[in-house]
Nucleic acid binder design. Structure first.
Lengths: 117, 117
DNA sequence: GAGGTATATAGATGGCCGTCGATCTGGAGC
DNA sequence: GCTCCAGATCGACGGCCATCTATATACCTC
């Protein structure tokens, strides 16, 4: 998966109609592309996107028991989505007694946001 | 864009009653969340992210024959990724003779970019 | 027309993802 | 101790995804 691999120019082509222009290389390295794509992948589900949206509305922390009834999904499924977001570094959680509170880590979205602009 | 709803702190509750009511609702409607998530999904692969990166960097139209050798993938696989990006509305293509030139549709990324900021 | 070339499509395959019900964990309160 | 509850984890299932090879399509040149 060599991003920095040299481009082999076209060897035979109809005259007068050049195929290949000067090569454009990816501006992002492979490792960076994988990081950004991983964030995009975590956001690539409407449920997770709305979860992040709710958490971002509150600068504070939101209880899981508030998140579950927002969606027509089972509690384990919502918990699974929260785990995906947590493992992507987009959210983190804190346990207080019986309840778990989730909150956004805004830094996690910066690289994707910066690449998009 | 933010809906101001307050987060009720968790208190002890009488047994037999549900833990809490949802206090925050998604600011993003389901249809909008699905649109944004679909864009994120198209970008959720490092190859496709780098393809978009190359096309954005070039700011013009890039021949497929330049894109294929950038990755250690078969030509049909690169073609598949370009098709995914095209069906997501992120890129479009134009055929010139034997060659196909791809270019970015910057509008497609705006909704995701706006949601992130 | 024949022959070659760039790209797209088809079909198969292995793996990952979203969802569920069932179960486990650990804290609260009796 | 025991019971109840919030949340996480497990195991399974169906479906979708990324990749390949093989083939088709479209186009050019002779």
């Amino acid at each position: 998966m060599a991003v920095d691999l040299e481009l082999a120019p076209k060897q035979k082509r109809p005259p007068g109609e050049p195929c290949c222009q000067p090569v454009a290389y990816p501006d992002v390295e492979r490792a960076q592309a994988e990081r950004i794509a991983a964030i995009a992948k975590a956001l690539a589900d409407p449920i997770r996107l709305q979860l992040v949206d709710v958490l971002r509305q509150h600068a504070g922390k939101v209880c899981v028991c508030e998140l579950v009834p927002l969606f027509d999904l089972s509690q384990p499924t919502v918990s699974h989505h929260l785990k995906v977001l947590r493992e992507a570094g987009i959210v983190d959680s804190e346990r207080r007694g019986l309840w778990a509170y989730y909150y956004v880590l805004p830094e996690a979205l910066k690289e994707l946001s910066a690449w998009l602009s």
